[in-house]
Design a protein around this nucleic acid. Structure first.
Lengths: 232, 232
DNA sequence: ATATAGGGTGTATTTATTACACTAAGCGAA
DNA sequence: TTCGCTTAGTGTAATAAATACACCCTATAT
């Protein structure tokens, strides 16, 4: 084995930018580190990839170990490979971004002791993060800003049943700008990928809004792969 | 050094999909391998990243060693990390895509003996490639198909001075469909990012077309970062 | 001079995008 | 029960962008 392979080996890791939407605000998941380097600092959840696991699998495993989250939407973002990005040696990291429905009490249970805790933090005022994690976060935000305009990723942040206003709030939070309510609804409903339910919001102290769900089947049929959401 | 780093190390490599445009056809650069595995096969130019070099730098170095090409447009594409993608061991590869102006006699001079030769091959009928390189190529093509609609990458494939028809041919080759001549020209000129030169094509046996060049300065001014080319 | 091959041009139609403001419904408090 | 509050829900006109479409022009070669 490894006949022609070189002698210099390196280490690689995975880091995850996990987006959640709560209180009308876009948040990401941070951990408080419990190890050098950057012990006590906040950082993205991330760890080393094992020799015998694929990187996509590693991303899922690491996210689970550091936060208790699993089975969520996740895509590879970019690979960061500067020689000096890790203070203790050459570590190349493959960054992933992920999205999750935050339904009230999403408890975060790290099962690994390499972090003290995991918590959600609004993206608006992120603190300084360890490593090059601020750069990784910024790249992931750019990515979803673009992606939300041609792939139905906004739904990953919402509960199964949602109102049009909630959906609009997700778009506004990601694009970081206000959208016109009438135009937004007209456009969104025109795509024909939402199913209106015979059900209304409950427990609100004002007029209850109609609930919708994303119709994956219609989406797949109408647009082989993508559509052009929210051009600007 | 390497205090808290794990003991299992891995190997990573870089593979490049280099696009060129010649005879109205989109081509990529292949090498004929001179080493196991896949000795004698055709593959993308790629090799191992050194322990002390950044991956972007490694991509440039490897491309130069395997083809003699340098200083060309190059962007990271995606990282392929399946456990078994390399038959001789765990090798994670970071793929890059690149674009180059093919001006008549672009001679390819590998300076490394890990390849027998390098050559251009039309993307229309690519042969079977070693490793997972076919998958890497397909992903890169998807990427540039999307990217050409919002970033001025088509110009990277053309000489400094080009005609509108040549530009249209690049779009058609990448998008793999015919475009309307009048609409294409109207749209392209409207962006205001082309400078018409006081010069015409020479050496053609028919009416000479006007030459244009891409005006990077105007582009940067008008659109902070991008525009919306060729929506469909 | 004429044949050839690609260069270059305009308009009408359709579709998408934008801007914009009021009434409706449900709940809670008085 | 009424009133006030808060969010839901709705339409149209104007503008801009995308599309479909066919002929004459011009340089060269023969």
């Amino acid at each position: 084995m490894q006949t022609g392979l070189p002698k210099f080996h390196s280490i690689f890791s995975v880091d995850c930018v996990v987006f959640g939407f709560e209180d009308g605000v876009l948040k990401i998941l941070l951990v408080e580190r419990n190890e050098e380097p950057f012990n006590g600092w906040w950082a993205l959840p991330g760890f080393f990839v094992q020799h015998d696991e694929g990187i996509d699998y590693a991303a899922e495993r690491i996210l689970y170990e550091l936060t208790g989250l699993r089975d969520i939407y996740m895509e590879q973002l970019y690979t960061f490979g500067d020689v000096n990005r890790h203070p203790e040696g050459r570590v190349i990291t493959v960054a992933y971004y992920a999205m999750i429905r935050l339904s009230g009490k999403n408890e975060l249970h790290p099962t690994s002791n390499i972090v003290k805790k995991a918590f959600w933090h609004p993206i608006a005022d992120l603190p300084k993060l360890g490593f090059d994690h601020t750069e990784i976060f910024e790249k992931s935000l750019d990515k979803i800003k673009r992606k939300i305009s041609y792939q139905p990723i906004a739904f990953e942040l919402l509960p199964e049943k949602f109102t049009l206003t909630q959906l609009q709030n997700v778009y506004e939070a990601i694009l970081n700008k206000k959208l016109d309510k009438r135009n937004f609804r007209k456009k969104m409903l025109n795509y024909g990928i939402l199913k209106e339910l015979d059900e209304k919001q409950r427990g609100v102290s004002f007029r209850a809004a109609a609930l919708y769900k994303f119709d994956r089947r219609k989406y797949a049929k109408l647009f082989q792969k993508e559509l052009s959401f929210m051009k600007d």
